[in-house]
């Protein structure tokens, strides 16, 4: 087998293994709940029968392995179980399917994240690479200092400053990003400007710093000095000698930051009351709605793992040592 294929397959297997273990960790969350949580969910007035019925519905009378297989089997087919909220002590069940809660919100979150990424990735790479190439110039120092300041700020600080300036003092953008499914595309974009800008500022700062460090590290390699000593012009040194070796570090930086973006949306969604999966999760945590929390956690974790997996695979297939084996 070609070493590239072999390494990619190994990496894929490792990724699947990680996903499996993560799902086990998330599943065991419910195991760690105190024994009387059914009472808490249904309310103090719940009768013995309703509690027993609820326990049976959750499968608490069965061994954990059986329940895990049931749960993960459901997840694979898009069935995350039923929410805890909407249940009453009387046994009346107005709870909703978790998937019905998540689906529309997941779409909203992906919209916000993509909108941010489309602007943030090229901008951050441009700033990072130029700062590395023009090291120790005023430009580099300016960019580095301002990004250091940005990464030090909590997301909600950035968000409220933007709201104060652009929604309150000069009301050009809405401070509430209350999008609805029937909204036209540009209306959605307009309403998402402030949350997307907040995320972008934070992500660009992180990504720019990491890109700069990666490029500087690359430029310190002896083969770059050799290329200079061969009298090649700066453009050729960068394009021909640095770039082919830069893909792996750059892709890793991008993946890492997109993964970070996924987490960053939680706070930003809450600030702008954006109907996304992050806000859903925060609400579910407040209400201790475990099935929803598990579903959200699994989605976030899977995204995170898949992004890193993709970065690794791109690094593998651009590695000349693997592409051209001995």
């Amino acid at each position: 087998m070609h070493p590239v294929l072999k390494t990619v397959l190994q990496r894929l297997a490792l990724g699947l293994m990680t996903l499996f273990l993560v799902s086990v960790v998330i599943f065991s969350a419910i195991e760690m709940l105190p024994g009387d949580f059914t009472q808490a969910v249904l309310g103090q007035a719940a009768t013995e029968e309703t509690v027993t019925a609820f326990r049976r519905e959750l499968g608490l009378d069965q061994p954990a392995i059986v329940r895990y297989v049931d749960w993960i089997g459901g997840v694979v087919t898009g069935d995350f179980g039923t929410s805890f909220s909407g249940r009453a002590a009387s046994g009346v069940d107005r709870s909703r399917e978790v998937i019905a809660l998540i689906a529309p919100r997941l779409e909203n979150t992906l919209f916000l994240a993509s909108m941010t990424a489309i602007v943030a990735v090229p901008l951050a790479l441009f700033l990072g690479i130029t700062a590395a190439l023009w090291r120790n110039t005023a430009y580099d120092k300016g960019v580095s200092a301002s990004t250091l300041a940005t990464i030090s700020m909590p997301e909600f600080f950035v968000a409220y400053i933007l709201i104060l300036v652009f929604a309150s003092l000069w009301p050009v953008f809405p401070s509430l990003a209350n999008v609805r499914p029937d909204m036209p595309f540009w209306e959605r974009v307009y309403r998402c400007i402030l949350p997307a800008t907040t995320l972008m500022l934070v992500i660009v700062a992180h990504m720019m710093r990491m890109t700069r460090a990666a490029i500087i590290n690359l430029l310190a390699q002896p083969y770059i000095e050799m290329a200079r000593l061969k009298g090649l012009p700066a453009r050729t040194v960068i394009l021909k000698h640095a770039l082919p070796n830069a893909w792996a570090p750059i892709v890793n930086v991008i993946a890492f930051n997109l993964a970070y973006l996924v987490v960053g949306v939680v706070v930003v969604e809450v600030v702008f009351v954006y109907p996304g999966i992050g806000q859903l999760m925060v609400d579910a945590v407040t209400n201790r709605d475990i099935p929803v929390v598990q579903a959200c956690a699994l989605i976030f974790a899977a995204t995170y793992i898949l992004l890193n997996l993709m970065a690794d695979i791109i690094s593998i297939v651009t590695n000349p040592r693997l592409l051209h084996p001995r």
């Binding site: 990680t18 996903l19 273990l21 993560v22 960790v25 998330i26 969350a29 760690m32 709940l33 993964a259 996924v262 987490v263 939680v266 999760m281 925060v282 579910a284 945590v285 201790r288 709605d289 475990i290 929390v293 598990q294 959200c296 956690a297 976030f300 974790a301 995170y304 793992i305 890193n308």
Partner: peptide, 18 residues
Amino acid sequence: DVLMAIPSLIFALMLLSI
């Protein structure tokens, strides 16, 4: 490795819910 595969804020939220 496994613990780090879950974003820490998300993990923290899940554990706080428990």
